[in-house]
Computed example of a mutant assay.
Amino acid sequence: MNILGISGSLRAASFNTALLHAAQELAPAGMSITIHRLHDLPLFNQDVEEQGDPESVVVLKQAIDQADGVLLACPEYNGGITGVLKNAIDWVSRPGRDRKTAALAGKLVCIAGASPGITGTVRAQDQLRLILRRAGAQTEPQGEVLVFQAHTKIVDGQLTDERTRDALARHLQGYATRLAALRG
C-alpha cells in the first residue's frame, strides 16, 4: 500500500512535516509513505495551465496517480488551510490539458494536522474536507488527528508524545483498513 504524504507547510521546522515523518515510522505493516514536497509548485494560473502543466505539477499529479492514497498533514493558519496546500489542491483537482481526469478524482485522502494552538487544526481540517469533496476526492471517514500545542509534542522534528503517537498509529491503521476494503 503506497501512500503519498503531503505537508501543507513549507517551513523547515514544520510540525506537519514532522507529523508525516512520524507517520512513516508508525505506518502499519504493508503501508509505505513517501513524502512529496510542494516547495517548487507555482501559483495556480489557468493561463499557464492552458499552455500545459509545469513540470512540478506534472510530477505531483503522477505521484498522486501512482499512490493508493494520500495523507495530508494540514496546518492551520488564521483559522483555515494554508495557501500552499490550497494551491496544490487547485492544481491537482483539474485534469489539465493532457489528462482525462483530475489526479484527486476518487482518491481516498486521510487528514492529520498539528498546530501550536489549543484546538489543533480542527477548523483547517473541516475546510480541507469541503475543498477535497469539491475536488472529487474522498475523505477518510474516521476521526481526526488534531495535534494541539504541537510545540510540546514535537521536539527537534520528532513526535515525542506517546498518546499522540498512539493516536496517529490508530488513525493510519484505520486508513489502511478502509483502503483495503475499497480495493476489495
Rank of each mutant, 00 (worst) to 15 (best):
L179T: 01
R123A: 12
Q138I: 09
Q149A: 15
T164I: 15
M31K: 02
M1K: 10
D126M: 12
L128C: 05
Q51P: 05
Q125D: 05
N16W: 01
A27N: 05
H21G: 03
A18L: 13
L4P: 00
I81G: 04
D90W: 09
I131K: 03
S14K: 11
V122W: 01
P28G: 11
H36L: 13
D40F: 06
D156E: 12
V70P: 03
G113S: 04
F15G: 11
Q125S: 07
D166F: 09
R163S: 14
R99D: 04
D126S: 09
L179Y: 01
V109M: 03
S7W: 13
E50H: 07
L130I: 14
D47P: 03
I89E: 06
F15Q: 13
I111E: 02
G80V: 08
A114D: 00
A114L: 03
E25S: 14
R37F: 12
C110I: 09
L172I: 11
Q66L: 14
N2A: 13
V59N: 08
S9R: 07
Q51M: 10
G83S: 13
I81Y: 02
R170K: 15
A137T: 10
D166H: 15
A150I: 02
S56C: 08
L172C: 10
P116Q: 12
E49M: 09
S14Y: 02
L104V: 11
A124M: 01
T164C: 15
L43T: 07
P54I: 07
D47H: 07
W91V: 06
G79H: 08
V92N: 04
R170Y: 09
A181W: 06
Q158K: 10
L146P: 07
Q127S: 10
F148N: 13
F44M: 08
R11L: 04
W91I: 04
S9F: 10
S32L: 10
A27P: 05
G120Q: 06
Q125G: 05
H21I: 08
I81E: 02
R183V: 09
Q127Y: 01
R11F: 01
I35C: 11
N45T: 10
L41Q: 02
N45A: 08
P116L: 12
V57F: 01
S14L: 07
Q125W: 02
L43G: 06
Q173H: 15
R94F: 05
M1D: 06
Q149L: 14
T164H: 06
I64K: 03
T139S: 11
Q142E: 15
A112E: 10
T139V: 13
I35T: 01
E49V: 05
Q142K: 13
G83D: 08
I33N: 04
